[in-house]
Design a binder for these strands. Structure first.
Length: 415
RNA sequence: GUGGGUGUCGCCUAGCGGUUAAGGCGCCAGGUUGUGGCCCUGGAGAUCGGGGGUUCGAAUCCCCUCACUCACCCCA
């Protein structure tokens, strides 16, 4: 027996209501904030991600699905969406449109990880990117938008956590200060941190190993090393968040796993603990477009994980609007009746009614049982008598009342 | 990638060295003539995740493997 590959899932019909719900809320919030949909390829040139996301990141280094196509090109299943959006921005000359260009996407991302609840090798993201404007008000708007989105889902408790990691300039300065702080303690620190020290010093800060806590606690704070411009940007953004009345928490240690982030970073975290630390996150990436070969162009955005939202909705028992089922069920007895039943079914469907017609030549009892189980409110029964008189027996399944009506009249009933 | 837990019909569970592997839900059919939801009866559906061992004998013990799951890591 074949099974779905590890870390992938089938989304069965009974789960679709959640997905529809989330997609609708996403589309709505995007409309309210002026974001337009973009659909992007699921695989890209590998270089787009190694350059964009960063060579040293876990995602690129050990989680990316990389393959060679038959033409010998190195391609990668996209591990995230931002790099693709930026590529599209550059490729299609979107700088010629009114700035910022606001785009959103919904689709799968792929990472070779060890799956667990809320974490998959193929998962779906809803993400937004605003490219071409460095105004801190835009950062605040993006955070506001993420916040409103989760709020509109009805998801109970979540927190917005923010930080600024500075620009290229002040980050370099900060990193050397950080390394200076750690280097005398390298032998006390966990092996992971020893690797981080070399590879990705920023990550030293959010090590959870108790051994490293004292050293991390005493480490210089990125906030203290921000250049005046970055400080001003950060303060302005916070001021705007205040105006928008978005509750947020500052976490000086918050860093993210992509190299392209500059200045603002943020995460939306479920308050109810749980293992998966974030529902979504994002930040500013003012160097990314240039890194990808474009002119220096600022950008800011966020991405969310749809599976995690579904998980949250189910865990919190939040009701979502059901997907409507068939309105009519047509039961029939005998060959002649089946022919006119099929005819009636198409006629009703042409008029826009959702109709299920029984197949397989089952007893009337079985057909009604099926209609009942499926929760279809009305059943049209067609037997020999009805064929002869050009009528159907229309049964209301909720009241158990039925009456004989001419076929023409039934068709008229459906508008 | 590291560590822990779990794995019996579609779903939930019983069985824990010798049973025709049991039950509930669901599914299908019947309870006379063309009628659902309740009830009754019957049926289909499991080589007990897979592979190897130990044993006269294994779903039950051991090893490997796969999958799921939790924590770490990382992130959505």
């Amino acid at each position: 027996m074949y099974r779905a590959p590890r870390g992938t899932t089938d989304i069965l019909p009974e789960q679709q209501a959640y997905w529809r719900y989330i997609e609708q809320k996403a589309a709505r919030i995007c409309r309210l904030y002026g974001y337009e949909r973009i659909d992007l390829p699921m695989f890209e040139d590998t270089g787009l991600f190694t350059r964009g996301v960063g060579e040293g990141t876990d995602i690129v280094e050990k989680e990316m699905y990389v393959f060679e196509d038959r033409g010998g090109n190195s391609l990668a299943l996209r591990p995230e969406g931002t790099a693709s959006v930026c590529r599209a921005y550059l490729e299609h000359g979107l700088h010629n449109r009114p700035q910022p260009v606001k785009l959103f996407y919904i689709g799968p991302a792929f990472r070779y990880e060890r799956p667990q609840a809320g974490r998959y090798r193929q998962h779906n993201q809803f993400g937004c990117e605003a490219i071409g404007d460095a105004d801190p008000a835009l950062d605040a708007e993006v955070i506001d938008m993420a916040w409103q989105f989760f709020f509109s889902l009805g998801l109970g408790r979540f927190t917005v956590v923010i930080n600024s990691i500075g620009c290229r300039k002040c980050r370099t300065e900060y990193l050397s200060a950080l390394k200076e702080h750690y280097s005398p303690h390298l032998d006390e620190v966990c092996p992971d941190c020893q690797v981080r020290f070399q590879k990705n010093p920023l990550r030293l800060l959010d090590c959870k190993n108790p051994r490293c806590q004292p050293i991390a606690d005493g480490a210089p704070k990125s906030a203290d090393y921000l250049c005046p411009e970055c400080t001003e940007h950060y303060d302005e953004m916070k001021r705007h968040l205040g105006i928008l009345e978005i509750p947020f928490k500052e976490d000086r240690r918050l860093v993210r796993g992509f190299d392209y982030y500059t200045r603002t970073v943020f995460e939306v975290q479920p308050e109810a603990g749980g293992s998966q630390s974030s529902l979504g996150g994002g930040g500013r990436y003012d160097g990314l477009l240039e890194e990808l070969g474009g002119k220096p162009t600022p950008g800011v955005g966020f991405a969310t994980g749809i599976e995690r939202m579904v998980l949250g909705l189910t865990r919190e028992n939040i009701p979502v609007p059901p997907i409507p089922g068939p309105e009519f069920f047509i039961a029939h007895l005998g060959n002649e009746a089946r022919d006119s039943a099929m005819k009636l079914a198409t006629t009703l469907r042409h008029k826009g009614a959702a109709v299920l017609i029984s197949t397989g030549g089952r007893s009337l009892k079985a057909q009604l049982r099926q209609a009942n189980t499926l929760g279809i409110p009305r059943v049209a029964i067609i037997g020999e008598d009805e064929v002869r008189t050009g009528t159907v027996m229309l049964r209301d399944m909720t009241t158990s009342k039925q009456e004989s009506v001419p076929v023409g009249k039934l068709v008229e009933l459906v508008v």
